[in-house]
Structure formats: structure tokens, C-alpha cells
């Protein structure tokens, strides 16, 4: 880090183009969404939060919100758990990069294309159902559990896992490569086993990266449209699909509702982000970074 004077203009010139772009699009965009979600026609004494009230009364809103939360939380948590486990085992047992490259393959294809793989493998007439029939565990396709276009979003979760575990690997492998393994000897000589090594040496180094990864994943999955649209059901519908349809497919009269819904989901993501970031603001983790 160069300690140049504060009045030096160079860093500002460097970040300005990207800053202008984001301000113009993202800040302006989200500002407009919020403005349009409010009822500003002040006639007949209708409430300023009229569309929010309408939203809360919409059939499917609450079940959709819950489904969205469930799917995002489950997919995020499982991706991180499996991803970190895999990163750890890769680092310790499978150092050859060919295996890492294989695990990164899913990053190459779009989410909706991965959705089709879920259909091919996990639907009732899919390949796994066939495999179960081959080993005579089931006799007909209808005996296979509904995993794609199911009410609980299981197919969506599995597909997100397939796409996001490689992302978690991508984020956590560098942490493993940078880790100071002399601390492992310290733990072991003081009587700790593998679990203690993970808890004391690996976890504190991983946590900041995992929090960042978790926030990115949760925010993305919570608001992504493509997979829930293709692999979801009509009821309950994840909120991103609901908002897209209100905004784009229906009449313009539904647009304020879509805006209100998007405002709600933005606020929820920001709350989750703030809570998670709070986890690593404690003194101990500032110490880690200050090291």
C-alpha cells in the first residue's frame, strides 16, 4: 500500500469510470425501484405504502417469500459446507490440479443449462430414476420422488449446489494455499486432533472469505430468476419469478407491486449481509487481518 498524500488525484481517476457506471445504473436503479414502490399520488388519502399492503395481501406472497428464503439459505449453507470440505480434502489428499479442474467444470455453463441437467438426471423419468429401477428399488417412474418442479424447490437447491460448490472451491482454495501450517504442529503437540486443527487453524482463516462468499451466494440465489422459473412450480412461486412476471408479463398496473417486492428482497439481502458481516467485526477477526 503506497502512502501517497490524500489530495493526490490519481486513485480517483482510476476508480472513477467504474464508480460512475455503478452510480448511474445500480444506485439510480435501486433508487427508482424504491421510489416507484411508494404510492406518491396523494389523492383520496391512500397510504404511501399502499403497494406494500397490497403485496402482503397477495396470495402466494408469503409462501413464495418463505420458499425463496428456504432455498437460498439451504443452497448457500450446503454449498459452503460441501465446498469447504472438498477444498480441505483437495488440499490435503488430492493435490493434482486435474481433479480441481474437473470440479470447476460446472462454472463453465449457465445456470439454466445446469437446470436442464437436473431434468435429465433427477426428474421422475430421469437417469437416476432409471438407475434405481435397474437395481429394482423402484418399478415405475411415479415411484421416484418428485425432485424437479417440486413444491420445496429441491431440484433448484441441488442445481445451485452443483453450480456453487465450485465457486466456494474457487474462493477457499487460495486460503488453504496461503495458510501457515506450522500452526497445525502447535495444535497437535498440544493434544489436538484433526477437528481441533480445523477449528483453530483453518476456520479463523476461512471465516472472512466464507462470509463474503455466503453473502454473494445468498444475494444471488435469493433474487435470481432463471432456475426457479425453469425448475419451479406455479404455487408456491419464488419471489424473483413473481416479480419478473408482474413487471414484464402482466399489465403495467402490476409494476408498482413488482417494485415493492424487489425493495423487500433488497432489504432482506442487506439485512442478511449486515448480520453476517457483523460476525467478523469482532476484535478477534480484526486481529487476524491485522496480522
Amino acid at each position: 500500500m503506497r502512502s501517497l498524500g490524500l489530495n493526490n488525484h490519481k486513485p480517483y481517476l482510476l476508480v472513477l469510470p467504474a464508480l460512475i457506471f455503478f452510480s448511474l445504473f445500480v444506485l439510480y436503479g435501486i433508487g427508482t425501484v424504491f421510489a416507484e414502490s411508494l404510492n406518491l399520488s396523494l389523492n383520496t388519502g391512500s397510504s404511501i405504502v399502499k403497494y406494500y399492503i397490497e403485496l402482503a395481501e397477495k396470495p402466494g406472497f408469503w409462501s413464495g417469500l418463505i420458499l425463496s428464503l428456504q432455498v437460498s439459505a439451504a443452497a448457500t449453507l450446503l454449498s459452503i459446507i460441501i465446498g469447504v470440505y472438498l477444498a480441505r480434502q483437495f488440499y490435503r489428499r488430492v493435490p493434482d490440479s486435474i481433479w480441481h479442474a474437473l470440479a470447476w467444470l460446472p462454472m463453465l455453463i449457465p445456470h439454466f443449462a445446469a437446470g436442464y441437467l437436473a431434468v435429465l438426471l433427477l426428474s421422475q423419468s430421469g437417469w437416476f430414476s432409471g438407475l434405481l429401477a435397474q437395481v429394482t428399488l423402484i418399478q415405475e417412474t411415479s415411484r421416484f420422488p418428485v425432485l424437479v418442479n417440486d413444491k420445496n424447490g429441491l431440484g433448484i437447491i441441488v442445481t445451485y449446489l452443483w453450480k456453487e460448490i465450485p465457486f466456494v472451491l474457487l474462493m477457499s482454495m487460495p486460503v488453504y494455499r496461503r495458510m501457515d501450517w506450522r500452526y497445525e504442529d502447535v495444535v497437535r503437540t498440544l493434544g489436538g486432533g484433526q477437528w481441533q486443527v480445523f477449528k483453530t487453524v483453518e476456520w479463523p482463516a476461512l471465516l472472512p472469505v466464507l462470509v463474503e462468499t455466503g453473502i454473494i451466494l445468498f444475494a444471488f440465489i435469493f433474487s435470481a430468476f432463471e432456475l426457479p422459473y425453469l425448475l419451479g412450480v406455479t404455487y408456491p412461486k419464488m419471489i424473483s419469478v413473481m416479480a419478473y412476471q408482474w413487471f414484464y408479463e402482466g399489465s403495467w398496473s402490476n409494476r408498482p407491486l413488482a417494485m415493492a417486492l424487489m425493495t423487500v428482497s433488497t432489504v432482506m439481502v442487506l439485512i442478511v449481509a449486515v448480520v453476517l458481516l457483523g460476525l467478523i467485526q469482532g476484535k478477534r477477526y480484526r486481529m487476524m487481518r491485522g496480522r
Binding site: 506450522r182 500452526y183 504442529d185 502447535v186 497437535r188 503437540t189 498440544l190 493434544g191 489436538g192 486432533g193 483453530t200 487453524v201 479463523p204 478477534r284 477477526y285 486481529m287 487476524m288 496480522r291
Partner: peptide, 21 residues
């Protein structure tokens, strides 16, 4: 025996204190 079962403790060149504790 594994390291954590031996009645032996080693101390290293660097202090290697856990920075977050």
C-alpha cells in the same frame, strides 16, 4: 502413537500464538 497422545510437548522457533485467541 500420534502427537496428541504423547506426553511430549514441543515449542517452536516462532511463538506461533493463535492470533484470534
Amino acid at each position: 502413537q500420534k502427537a496428541n497422545q504423547r506426553p511430549v510437548v514441543m515449542m517452536f522457533q516462532q511463538p506461533l500464538l493463535f492470533p484470534h485467541l
